[in-house]
Design a binder for these strands. Structure first.
Lengths: 199, 199
DNA sequence: ATTCATAATGAACGCTCGTTAATATATGCA
DNA sequence: TGCATATATTAACGAGCGTTCATTATGAAT
């Protein structure tokens, strides 16, 4: 193999251009020229534009939030729930801040309604794991009488929704200058939420 | 004039197709064939595809949420804040449920990152008026010692965010079968929120 | 050094795109 | 009735699209 990185280069370049111009708006030629090869060379690695799109999606489905966020030292903080929630959110946001993740959510928001082949792409699908983790956390807290007795599912929704809006509003473009505002908003959200549920 | 409705037909058809396939994905020919005319006929009414897009946006900027939602009988409910909030949300959601509004938010989510001509299209811009109305409401409630003393801007964010997520998740596709779930989620949200802020 | 799979190239295909021009038709008014 | 205007049609343009194919360059294994 001459350049074994070409296949991966196609994927990252395609994600970049798809997230900027949409699936229909970014052409195979754009992707190829952006890498520095001819469009026909791409077909040595992927058999169609659609396959590139699917490959991007597979790459993201492979890694779960749990592995990214729920580290052991974080779990230990569960004895101090407010501190735990704050650290959890900080970890989540710093995870969301990565260039690749930002591009992916952009692509998700843009193409959630467009059927591309047989691929499913939905906000619900994207949030489902985060919500179930939160539900689990609040369920435990409730069981140990740390928080009020409210349906954990409702708590998970209430905790997740403002974070998602913050993400949608401030974490989808390229400049990171607003990252302080993001942490500020997220922190205020945790404080409001904690005051609402603590016993 | 033969068919004075053609110009408006182009607009509504374009909104429909743009919201289904995106701006780049819906062609002038699609729009024309969908109306039942040839593509060149469109140029008797709009001078470019971009102008059609701008016209759609102008039509939506023209009407404000205040006029749609804040009726007099609703204002009278302010003496019973929880009832007021519940009715406010119901009115908001039934407003959001209209086919045109659903198509518009879809278009907004799809094209918020794509520069189309000089048009600005952002979630923040879409939410700014709703948020400022909520901020005003909570500011008044706080002044009259109906709710806890919390920064009205934070309250507006906390009140708005879950509603927006509900809208994004359940109110963007064509089937209305999930509308009961929407009202249920919204109602639970108001209850959680009210318990968090009431004195 | 030759072989051979891999990966690059350039040219071409059939198609759709946004847009324009020339032309035809129908309507409203003098 | 006839003329001006608005609105439609048909045809074509240059360009870009996804994709294919024959060909050439590359680099590792024999």
């Amino acid at each position: 193999m001459k350049q074994p990185n070409t296949k991966q280069l196609i994927l990252s370049t395609a994600l970049d251009l798809f997230s900027k111009h949409g699936y229909a708006g970014a052409s195979i030629r754009h992707i190829a020229r952006s890498i520095g090869i001819r469009e026909s060379a791409i077909y040595n690695h992927y058999k169609s534009k659609e396959e590139i799109f699917s490959a991007i999606l597979s790459e993201f489905k492979a890694v779960t939030i749990s592995e990214k966020i729920l580290s052991d030292d974080l779990i230990e903080d569960l004895v101090n729930p407010e501190k735990f929630l704050k650290r959890f959110v900080i970890k989540l946001i710093s995870q969301w801040s990565s260039a690749t993740e930002r591009k992916f959510i952009r692509l998700l928001l843009m193409e959630q309604f467009t059927k591309i082949g047989s691929t499913e792409l939905s906000v619900s699908g994207y949030l489902i794991e985060l919500r179930s983790i939160c539900k689990m956390i609040f369920s435990e807290m409730s069981k140990h009488n740390i928080i009020k007795k409210v349906d954990p599912e409702i708590l998970a929704n209430q905790f997740t929704a403002p974070l998602f809006l913050i993400r949608t509003e401030y974490m989808t473009n390229d400049d990171v200058k607003e990252i302080n505002k993001v942490y500020d908003l997220a922190n205020k959200h945790v404080e409001f939420f904690w005051n609402a549920v603590k016993l």
